[in-house]
Structures are given as structure tokens and as C-alpha cells.
Design a protein around this nucleic acid. Structure first.
Lengths: 173, 173
DNA sequence: ATGATGTGCTTCGGATTCGAAGCAACTGCC
DNA sequence: GGCAGTTGCTTCGAATCCGAAGCACATCAT
């Protein structure tokens, strides 16, 4: 299928490791700041920030899950947590009874506002400080392309559920 | 304290989000492949790979923790797991009674070898496919600088415990 | 030596994660 | 209409993660 299981050259390895390490370090630092400043986990912050940017401060669970990279069940868990703290509300959609609309509350926006300045400071000091303007632009461009490609490419076993047909009725979807 | 709590411009935001999303997506995909191919978590793979690259296939716990971004306790947990499966051994250092040396076993190398080809395939298909040679070089360069900077920069409250000196006895290490 | 401090690792408890399974509501097709 | 299949979300159980506290050895100053 693919050609011989070749190995990666030094540059590729470097890019791969640097990507993983840089994002891990950054994420850890950001997580700590969020925890200290507003008692938020990273996902919780992402959810609030996404909602804060959304029209009417609302989104369906599914849309949220698409934006963030988390599992559905994890999203449910965090949404519950945020609801308990009064930072979001959850309401049934009227047109689709199954669908749940999550909305950020004023208190949620308050926490977001309280946490933002420190968040930006961390980014400035850790990520942007050693990079030039041009670096940042280049980085954004390259990573955006990689991300978009990955989003388009199914995870290699993402068939949503292969159901067995009654018998012999096997046409492709 | 810091200057006015400015906000990020579009490019910076783009770079930040792209970094987080791209690394998350990549990590998830890699994790799945590792799970399927060798029943390894990502950390476990990182540990084995690090050991495999080390002289004599050995490292002290602390050195491993520095290489990977994980917490000490998490490292202990994974090392135990790997030991149970016979992929590494743990032995006391002779010169420092507290220190534990982790060594990869032949079986560990076997798992590593079994998992590698698929690992590389995932990287090729997901990360490198949409990027040019030059992109990869640039990416490696920029992210390496960012990573090195972050490693140098203490996490803003990482003073390992500032003991008060008796008085005036302050020379640098 | 000997106590004070520092270091290396583990244990402990709690939080967060995921996938699989379950439930309820929607859709399409006969 | 009415049932098969799909979709949206939650629940469940197990795995994994982290920080704080604990333990044992090392090192340093007295």
C-alpha cells in the first residue's frame, strides 16, 4: 500500500517534536493561569470563549464539540460543571427536542473578562515573545493549513458505525 | 503592572488557535493509532521512544520527566504500567539510592518497532501531506525557538520553594 | 557527627478524560 | 401512519492525569 515503511528525516522529526512539546508547554502554562485566575480548566475556558464569540452567546452542544476537539461525553461533563457554577445555561431547542442549546450567562462573561488579561499575558510572554511578526504570520499560515487538512481527513477508522445488513443487501452508502 | 491589558490581533489569535487545534488533532490521531497498533498511550510511547534513543536504553525518572512534559506522579504511574507489561525495567541506582533508572527491554523495543511504521504513516498523511519541504523546515525552526524559550521561562510561579537564606549569603550557583 | 534542608520518587485523593452503551427524538421510505 | 435507521445528548465504567503530601536518601553547615 504505502511505500516501504520509511522513517522520518531530521527536519520532520524536529517539526513533529517541536509541535508537540511547544503546544504541551503552552497548554500547561495556560491551564495553570486559568486555574489560578478563574478556576477554569482549559476546556471550560474554550467553551466559554467560544460561546462569548457566538451570536446571542449560544451554541448547540454538537457545534461546540466540533469547535473544540473533545469527546461528546467530556463536553457534557464540562457543560454540567459550568452550569452548576452558573456560568452557562442549558435549554432544550424548540425545533429539535433532542438538541440542547448552551448559553453563556453574564456571570460567565464576567469570569471570562477576569481571566482574559492574564491569558493574553501568558501568550505574549511564552509564545510570542521569541517570535517576530513575520514568524507569527508564517506560523499561523502553516498550522492553519495543517489543521484544515486534518479536519478534512477522517481519522482512519471513523466510519460512524458499520451496521450489518439483513443479508445480501450490500450497496455502498 | 503590565501595560494595559491589550488584546491579541487576528494573526496572533490565528497562530494560537491553529497551534492548539493542530496539535490536538494530531495527538488524538496518533493516540488512536498507538492504541490500535500496540495498546500504548501517547505518554507510554514517548517514554519508550525516549528510552530507545538513550544510551543503553536507560534514563533516570527525572530525566524522563524533563523530556516529556508530564508530571512526576503521572510518570510513575506510566512507568509502573510499562513495567507490568514487561516493556521496561526499573532498578535503583547504585550511586544514588533514591534514584530509579528505567531501561527499555527487548520486548519494549519490539513493541516500539511494531508501532513505528503506522506512526510515521499517520504523521505523513495528517501533518506533512499538506506542507511543503520549506514549510516543514520553517515550522521546525519557529516552533523550536518557541519551545526553547518556554523551557527557559519558568511558569510564573515555579520557584521550587524559595527558602529564606540566613542573611546576606546570596551568591549565584 | 548531626540536624536542617534539598532531592527523587511514590502514594493518595480527586478531577477529567474517553468510548461504549443507552435513551429519546427525528427522518425517510414503504 | 409506522417502522428502520440516524442523530443528539447523557450515563456508565475504566483509565489517566495532576498536585499535595509523604518517605527515604543526600548534602551542607555547623
Amino acid at each position: 500500500m504505502t511505500s516501504a515503511p520509511r522513517s522520518l528525516d531530521a527536519t520532520q522529526l524536529g517539526a513533529y517534536f517541536a509541535l508537540i512539546e511547544a503546544s504541551s508547554l503552552l497548554k500547561h502554562a495556560v491551564e495553570q493561569q486559568l486555574r489560578d485566575a478563574g478556576d477554569l480548566s482549559y476546556v471550560q475556558f474554550q467553551l466559554l470563549a467560544t460561546l462569548g464569540d457566538s451570536p446571542a452567546g449560544s451554541r448547540r452542544m454538537t457545534d461546540l464539540a466540533d469547535g473544540v476537539v473533545y469527546s461528546r461525553s467530556g463536553l457534557t461533563y464540562q457543560a454540567q460543571t459550568l452550569e452548576k457554577r452558573g456560568l452557562v445555561t442549558r435549554t432544550q431547542s424548540s425545533d429539535d427536542e433532542r438538541s440542547v442549546t448552551v448559553t453563556i450567562t453574564d456571570e460567565g462573561r464576567g469570569v471570562l473578562a477576569k481571566v482574559f488579561p492574564g491569558h493574553i499575558t501568558v501568550l505574549d510572554e511564552l509564545l510570542f515573545a521569541p517570535l517576530s511578526r513575520a514568524d507569527i504570520e508564517t506560523l499561523a499560515d502553516i498550522l492553519a493549513r495543517a489543521r484544515d487538512h486534518m479536519r478534512r481527513t477522517p481519522p482512519r477508522s471513523a466510519e460512524p458505525r458499520r451496521r450489518r445488513k439483513p443479508a445480501g443487501t450490500d450497496q455502498l452508502p
